[in-house]
């Protein structure tokens, strides 16, 4: 899932300071699971900002709403009235949700309340770790199901490097060396011969290096005829 963190409150306060009516919009998907932008977090932020306004003697109205998924237009439409009625929207979702609202209402000012951080998994309560970079060309079939692109500080395809020590990474000794983990996993699976397989240089054009990526699933995409039908229904 996408893992995000709340921006510092003074940074948020500066962004929304010039505006009188603020709509704070959270999301019940990934950012709710990582405790950054769900219902509780939105309510706490609104409450804290109201207290700050009271302390600073500023008149500002803040209202919090939470959507099922802020990155999908259908859900955003549910709060269209609130968005249009506000002077500024503070989005408490990942950057995808923020940009979805921005694209739908280009005349409205949308600012992010969260820093979108990683594609991560919950390791334990309150701990998320990065395990994918979304490179668009998955190779974990040859690495025991462990991604060296995301989990190795140097994204090495043929590791480990000389900095691996006692199973830990030289960049951060608190973190396990991805290639040590791959070796241990392959040993467990009796597939150690894969360590000798030389992975050729990676084609990074499938990653963000190749520019903005758009994925199309032809069988799901609406035909012009279907689109016209939808428009009539709406």
């Amino acid at each position: 899932m996408i893992v995000a963190e709340r921006k510092p409150l003074d940074e948020i306060a500066k962004m929304i300071a010039p505006y009188e009516k603020v709509a704070v919009i959270g999301c019940r998907s990934c950012v709710a699971i990582c405790l950054a932008g769900g219902e509780k977090e939105v309510n706490m932020l609104v409450s804290a900002m109201r207290l700050k306004n009271r302390k600073d003697g500023r008149k500002q109205s803040l209202d919090g709403f939470v959507l099922e998924r802020q990155c999908e237009k259908e859900w955003v439409k549910e709060v269209e009235e609130k968005i249009l009625d506000s002077d500024i929207v503070l989005s408490m979702s990942c950057s995808l949700g923020t940009q979805t609202i921005g694209d739908m209402y280009p005349h409205k000012i949308i600012v992010p309340g969260l820093n979108t951080a990683i594609f991560g998994v919950p390791e334990e309560q309150g701990v998320w770790s990065e395990k994918c970079l979304g490179c668009g060309d998955c190779i974990i079939d040859t690495t025991g199901g462990i991604c060296p692109i995301a989990r190795c500080a140097k994204s090495m395809l043929n590791g480990p490097c000389g900095g691996s020590s006692d199973g830990h990474c030289e960049v951060n000794t608190d973190i396990e060396c991805a290639w040590y983990a791959i070796h241990e996993r392959l040993k467990l699976q009796n597939r150690l011969e894969l360590m000798e397989y030389v992975r050729p240089p990676k084609n990074w054009s499938t990653s963000h290096s190749g520019g903005r990526r758009i994925i199309v699933k032809e069988d799901a995409k609406l035909t012009p005829h279907q689109k016209r039908g939808r428009e009539v229904l709406e």
């Binding site: 207290l51 700050k52 302390k55 600073d56």
Partner: peptide, 8 residues
């Protein structure tokens, strides 16, 4: 921590 951030 939140209160400290907001100056309260």
């Amino acid at each position: 921590g939140m209160l400290a951030e907001t100056g309260i």
